[in-house]
Design a protein around this nucleic acid. Structure first.
Length: 484
RNA sequence: GGGCCGUUAGCUCAGUUGGCAGAGCAGUACACUUUUAAUGUACGGGUCGGCGGUUCGAAUCCGCCACGGCUCACCA
């Protein structure tokens, strides 16, 4: 829908604007000094005090020689009372040329109506910005999902619960920042455009850097740069910003998403476990009002300590004590009897991981630390001392979704090279020589962790799609040729 | 990318077996000086997502396309 689309509504509004201009009103005004946002005015000013407010005209109840109307800004709504006798014939008549959604400024004195509502008795009004297109209908709200995402500004105006959810998301992000900063972590910024996309296994977006005549990649993770900072002496750092992965869209995937990564030198996976548990508890309490969160289907109890279980225990619990003694083909047969389709090329590791992802992970509703994953799955983590086939990691799973993977970081450059090479041989990952050089200069032992912020907000708020916690989720662009 | 479902007025939605395109809100006009989804009276508003086909006749049946939703695949 183009803003220039002609329709009856727009025509009327243009005509009203033209008449207001004739009367000396400026349809797109400048700054307006207000006593405060509407919520402040409501809270801090009393009857008979003079106030100056601004906002959108939302509903008008025209009584003939007087009018009640609601004005709304980002904080609240407030009623104004327009009286012909008070305002004068000209200003009163001009007010009737306003349309719903117009931004106006009003000066007047506060009083309380006989129904008990705090109201501004207008002495003067100014036009601040004309709205040429109408707002969505006022009490069914805006339902059309496509319009809600493509024209999120309308969704935010029409659906208060949407605004409330984004207010919460903003607060989650700011609480995380202050929580970490107060504990001595420094927030850093590392490249979003990288010469090679490392730190995770995902298809990157490619872009072209003309000046250097070279391809660059939007980052799939900041991990390898944050570890370079550990080498450089930043020993408690975090970064909370966008990652980009060239993957399909789904209820739980957006190609750009917000990731928090935290690294702490001389710590390990146990330190990360304590940190994430206290961080999420803090966010739940400060933003969501307690430790019982989520919606009816997935009502969650975040009271610590959270369950801790090894990957192997989960597999054995689900598939039988003899699982790890089975031959590859017997394991495949048993998996297939659970309605999984098993690729003939998969080895034992992949069959087992398919079981974890399809049969186990999504059933872990209450917060669970899944520990000691197979080493092949996590090439950047340190091997467990007592078991070379596992790595010293956890995945925090809540509501069936992986929220935060954490590891004791691999800091042995020789072993790291071997793991990268093994992975490259399997066709995944690339060798980042600059990173390996950094490790050779000595990276302190460290705990590191990634937290998917969008999914965390989904889980805490009970939102059922990642689109609902991202202001402008990715959609297919409108084709430019077609009308509409 | 596959399967299923959806797209009707500015918004929210009806629309029967294929037979004149509907409602509420919003809008316009008039009345009304304490209303709260103000009220009352009257009126206007449609490329039924797009293109093609079947038919005497298509919002309705068929095909293709666009966009969206759910789901599967992808995401080691």
């Amino acid at each position: 829908m183009s803003g220039a689309e002609e329709n009856e509504y727009r025509e009327h509004r243009l005509a009203n604007m033209a008449r207001l201009i004739e009367l000396g009103y400026e349809p797109f005004g400048n700054a307006f000094a207000r006593s405060g946002r509407l919520a402040d005015v409501r809270a801090k000013y009393n009857e008979d005090e003079h106030v100056s407010i601004a906002g959108r005209l939302m509903t008008v109840r025209d009584m003939g020689k007087s009018i009640f109307a609601d004005v709304r800004d980002g904080s609240d709504r407030l009623q104004i009372y327009i009286q012909k006798k008070k305002l004068g014939d000209a200003a009163f008549a001009a007010f009737k040329l306003l349309d719903m959604g117009d931004h106006i400024g009003v000066e007047g004195t506060l009083f309380t109506t006989k129904t008990g509502e705090k109201t501004v008795f207008a002495e003067k009004w100014v036009l601040l910005a004309k709205a040429l297109l109408p707002l969505p209908e006022k009490w069914h709200g805006l339902r059309d999902v496509e319009a809600r995402y493509r024209q999120r500004y309308l969704d935010l105006i029409a659906n208060p619960e949407v605004r409330d959810l984004f207010d919460k998301r903003i607060k989650v992000v700011s609480e995380i920042r202050s929580y970490l900063t107060e504990r001595g972590f420094q927030e850093v910024e590392t490249p979003m455009m990288q010469p090679q996309a490392g730190g995770a296994a995902a298809q990157p977006f490619v872009t072209r850097y003309s000046a250097l005549n070279t391809d660059m990649y939007l980052r799939i993770a900041p991990e390898l740069y944050l570890k370079r900072l550990l080498v450089g002496g930043f020993d408690k750092v975090f970064e909370m910003n966008r990652n980009f992965r060239n993957e399909g869209l789904s209820r739980t995937h957006n190609p750009e998403f917000t990731m928090l990564e935290i690294y702490e030198a001389y710590s390990n996976v146990t330190g990360m476990q304590k940190l994430i548990q206290s961080l999420i508890v803090h966010v739940a309490e400060t933003v969501f009002g307690g430790l019982h969160v989520g919606n009816g289907d997935a009502s969650l109890d975040l009271t610590p300590p959270w369950r801790e279980v090894t990957y192997r225990e989960l597999i054995v619990e689900r598939m039988g004590a003899d699982w790890y003694e089975l031959s590859r083909d017997d394991a495949a047969a048993r998996a297939e009897s659970e309605n999984l389709s098993i690729d003939r090329q998969w080895d034992m590791l992949m069959i087992t991981h398919e079981i974890y992802e399809k049969l186990i992970e999504r059933t872990l509703m209450q917060p669970t630390f899944v520990t000691r994953l197979p080493a092949e799955l996590v090439p950047l983590a340190r091997i467990c001392k007592d078991d070379p086939s596992s790595v010293d990691v956890f995945e925090l799973v809540i509501a069936g979704q992986e929220v935060a993977p954490a590891y004791t970081e691999m800091n042995d450059p020789i072993e790291q090279r071997r793991r990268f090479e093994a992975q490259a041989a399997h066709g995944g990952g690339s060798l980042d020589e600059d990173f390996l050089t950094a490790l050779e200069h000595g990276m302190p032992p460290a705990g590191g962790m990634g937290v998917g912020i969008d999914r965390l907000v989904m889980i805490l708020s009970g939102a059922d799609a990642i689109r609902d916690v991202i202001l402008f989720p990715q959609l297919r662009p409108r084709s430019s040729s077609g009308a509409n």
